[in-house]
Design a protein around this nucleic acid. Structure first.
Lengths: 252, 252
DNA sequence: CGTGCATTTGACCACCTTCAATAAAGGTGG
DNA sequence: CCACCTTTATTGAAGGTGGTCAAATGCACG
């Protein structure tokens, strides 16, 4: 098992082992069955994937894989929120992305994981051996194509984030982030009434946007004072003026 | 033709048409024949690619494709240096990457080009219809796999750049950039004697690193004064203390 | 030798960070 | 259920890195 408990550590980087149990589960009832990479598979093909997959349940604040470690597995998220991050030698952290159900990670890692993955909430992951999935690309061309498509979308989002990190001001960064999270949150949730659920901490948001927690907090307060958003609880934000927020995010 | 002359414009963003000619060329003698995506193709398969490819020669400072435009073509670089960039509404620019022979662009653009591509030097490009290349993925699985691999590497580099943009200081950014360019410049060039050729302007470097030209310039001067590099001409930089530069780039 | 552009350098300033204190939220045990 | 402690978030004051504005220098090209 690769899951490590990091909940009692400074900056969430400890490496105690935890003992969550691995269990087999049918892919047919999986929440990701008709999204993500599995959606291109026929039922028959699905079984060959199911045979090499294990479902892993983890608590919040657990490390799933570590930057530099040999990349044996690919992970598909079934439930919860995951953060992917990289660190500099002195501990400065950059969060590369927040992942949600249907997203996967650990594939683009031929020379070991290029990032650390940690659970933000309690989570359920589907774990499969990288090598066997890669081997299936020639067997199941549709799978390779689907993965390529997903990777392309991923690349484009990462390039958008480069624009954000390199050229946007603090307020623009936070607003862009809020709108992005809002766009990808399922309609079933609080989406309809313009409410956003933020599972991650202010510190996570800061490290994602290339800011400090203090600046993130001040920008939240400012947006709130300007009546562009309202903050009900710390993790729930309501969009009050979508049009203005969109203009801010695009840098007008 | 999609090439536009931008050499006489403010910030290189004009859209005058130019009339460089398109010509057919055999893929066999192409400099990219044994690198990049073409390397996985058999000679026979190469012909089917050759049939849909055109070689385009362009001068420096020409726009090859524009952010937002319908993405009809994929471009493979045979000669020269290309910059890929995105812009905010008010003109702030972020350069996503500098591309060199063997690199390609324009594939991950299902909803129109997500960036603008411009030549920095005189260049030679191999242009092919996106749809036909994508269609070949099912026909030639090896091609799809190769492209997936390249895209994965690209994604990892982009994530490294996120760390740079979000968490590195000006000096660390510039040093990281210099070392990256040095690593990817062919050994045949000035590599052996620790010399780096920089085809791009200070303004390009600034927009790539999320800085201003003034800061880039000051950091060059500083590194020079600290005897870590020496600047022979503006476009040629010599590495004097590789060990120290590597430590700066990694954030120690 | 002058014109035009890129780069460098200097002085000043602002945005964001850093440091510090306070407040709020969450978890644990009595 | 509340007291206590820890963690997380907010707010304030001061400072620094890098940005802005402006001028000078260097360089290519006619």
């Amino acid at each position: 098992m690769v899951i490590r408990d990091t909940s009692h550590s400074v900056k969430d980087t400890a490496t105690q082992l935890c003992t969550d149990e691995v269990c087999y589960q049918s892919c047919e009832q999986c929440v990701s069955r008709h999204v993500s990479m599995c959606s291109v598979l026929e039922d028959a093909e699905l079984h060959t994937i199911a045979d090499i997959s294990k479902t892993i349940e983890t608590k919040a604040k657990q490390q799933v894989c570590a930057e530099g470690e040999a990349a044996e597995h690919l992970f598909n998220i079934k439930k919860g929120c995951i953060r992917i991050s990289k660190m500099l030698a002195d501990g400065r952290r950059q969060i590369i992305g927040f992942l949600f159900p249907g997203d996967f990670f650990g594939l683009a890692c031929s020379n070991g994981y290029s990032y650390t993955a940690e659970t933000i909430t309690d989570a359920e992951l589907c774990r499969m051996p990288r090598s066997e999935i890669i081997a299936k690309f020639s067997e199941l061309p549709a799978l390779g194509e689907k993965v390529l498509n997903i990777t392309h979308t991923e690349l484009q989002k990462t390039q958008d984030q480069m624009l954000l990190l390199g050229r946007k001001r603090a307020k623009e960064k936070l607003v862009s982030f809020l709108l992005n999270i809002w766009h990808k949150s399922p309609a079933s949730e609080t989406n309809a009434d313009h409410e956003i659920y933020l599972p991650m901490s202010r510190s996570d948001i800061a490290d994602y946007l290339g800011l400090t927690i203090e600046t993130v907090s001040r920008q939240f307060t400012q947006l709130s004072k300007d009546k562009l958003i309202s903050i009900t609880e710390n993790q729930f934000v309501k969009i009050l003026d979508l049009r203005k927020l969109e203009r801010i995010a695009s840098g007008e």
